[in-house]
Amino acid sequence: KYSDMIVAAIQAEKNRAGSSRQSIQKYIKSHYKVGENADSQIKLSIKRLVTTGVLKQTKGVGASGSFRLA
């Protein structure tokens, strides 16, 4: 599940300011076997996790910027 992968990526990075979408994508692609549409799936999952309150956006708008666990 992409949401689990995103949470794992943010936990692994341990950046106080949060993790960027690009760094999350890079982590997921190197640690998991994902399909061609992974980028758009990650983007959608990040937006969903922010609206449900699992992630907090520290910089930027939408799916860009930095995110950390709430």
Rank of each mutant, 00 (worst) to 15 (best):
K1S: 14
K1P: 09
K1N: 12
K1V: 10
K1G: 08
Y2P: 02
Y2D: 02
Y2K: 01
Y2M: 10
S3R: 10
S3K: 11
S3A: 13
S3L: 10
S3I: 11
S3C: 15
S3F: 14
D4P: 05
D4T: 08
D4R: 11
D4K: 09
D4M: 11
D4F: 12
D4N: 07
I6V: 09
I6M: 00
I6F: 00
V7I: 15
V7L: 12
V7H: 03
V7Q: 03
V7A: 09
V7W: 03
A8V: 05
A8Q: 07
A8G: 03
A8M: 06
A8K: 07
A8S: 06
A9P: 00
A9F: 03
A9N: 00
A9G: 02
A9S: 02
A9C: 15
A9D: 00
A9E: 00
I10E: 01
I10P: 01
I10H: 02
I10M: 05
Q11C: 15
Q11D: 04
Q11W: 07
Q11A: 11
Q11V: 11
A12F: 06
A12S: 08
A12K: 04
A12G: 04
E13T: 09
E13S: 12
E13C: 13
E13W: 05
K14Y: 08
K14Q: 12
K14R: 10
K14E: 08
N15S: 10
N15I: 04
N15M: 05
N15H: 08
N15A: 08
R16D: 10
R16T: 10
R16A: 13
R16Y: 10
A17S: 10
A17D: 11
A17R: 12
A17T: 09
A17Q: 10
G18W: 04
S19R: 05
S19C: 12
S19V: 12
S19T: 08
S20P: 03
S20K: 04
S20V: 03
S20G: 03
S20T: 14
S20D: 06
R21M: 15
R21L: 15
R21W: 15
R21V: 15
Q22H: 08
Q22L: 10
Q22Y: 09
Q22E: 14
Q22N: 09
S23T: 08
S23D: 10
S23K: 05
S23Y: 14
I24Y: 00
I24G: 02
I24H: 02
I24M: 01
I24P: 01
Q25T: 15
Q25K: 07
Q25A: 13
K26D: 13
K26F: 08
K26G: 06
Y27M: 01
Y27H: 03
I28Q: 00
I28H: 01
I28P: 02
I28D: 00
K29R: 07
K29D: 04
K29Y: 09
S30D: 12
S30H: 08
S30T: 12
S30R: 08
H31T: 05
H31P: 00
H31S: 02
Y32C: 06
Y32T: 04
Y32A: 02
Y32M: 03
Y32E: 00
Y32W: 07
K33L: 10
K33E: 12
K33P: 11
K33W: 06
V34N: 03
V34Q: 02
V34I: 06
V34A: 04
V34C: 06
G35I: 04
G35T: 06
G35S: 07
G35Q: 05
E36D: 11
E36K: 15
E36C: 11
E36A: 14
E36N: 12
N37C: 08
N37T: 05
A38T: 04
A38N: 03
A38G: 04
A38Q: 04
A38V: 09
D39W: 09
D39H: 05
D39P: 05
D39V: 07
S40Q: 12
S40L: 13
S40F: 13
S40C: 10
S40R: 15
S40M: 14
Q41H: 09
Q41T: 05
Q41C: 15
Q41L: 14
Q41K: 15
Q41I: 12
I42T: 01
I42H: 00
I42K: 01
I42L: 04
I42W: 03
K43T: 13
K43H: 11
K43D: 15
K43A: 14
K43Y: 14
K43W: 15
L44Y: 07
L44Q: 11
L44S: 09
L44A: 12
L44R: 14
S45K: 05
S45P: 01
S45L: 10
S45F: 09
I46R: 01
K47M: 13
K47T: 09
R48W: 15
R48E: 13
R48K: 10
R48D: 09
R48T: 08
L49A: 02
L49F: 02
V50D: 01
V50C: 15
V50M: 05
T51V: 12
T52P: 00
T52Y: 07
G53W: 03
G53Q: 03
G53S: 01
G53L: 03
V54C: 07
V54A: 04
V54G: 02
V54E: 03
L55S: 01
K56H: 12
K56A: 08
Q57H: 11
Q57S: 07
Q57E: 12
T58H: 07
T58I: 13
T58W: 06
K59S: 10
G60L: 06
V61Y: 12
V61S: 12
V61H: 12
V61Q: 11
V61G: 12
G62Y: 07
G62M: 05
A63P: 08
A63Y: 08
A63Q: 11
A63H: 11
S64G: 14
S64K: 14
G65R: 11
G65P: 15
G65W: 14
G65E: 14
G65K: 13
S66E: 08
S66I: 13
R68V: 14
R68W: 12
R68A: 12
R68N: 07
R68Q: 14
R68D: 06
L69R: 02
L69K: 03
L69D: 03
A70N: 08
A70L: 07
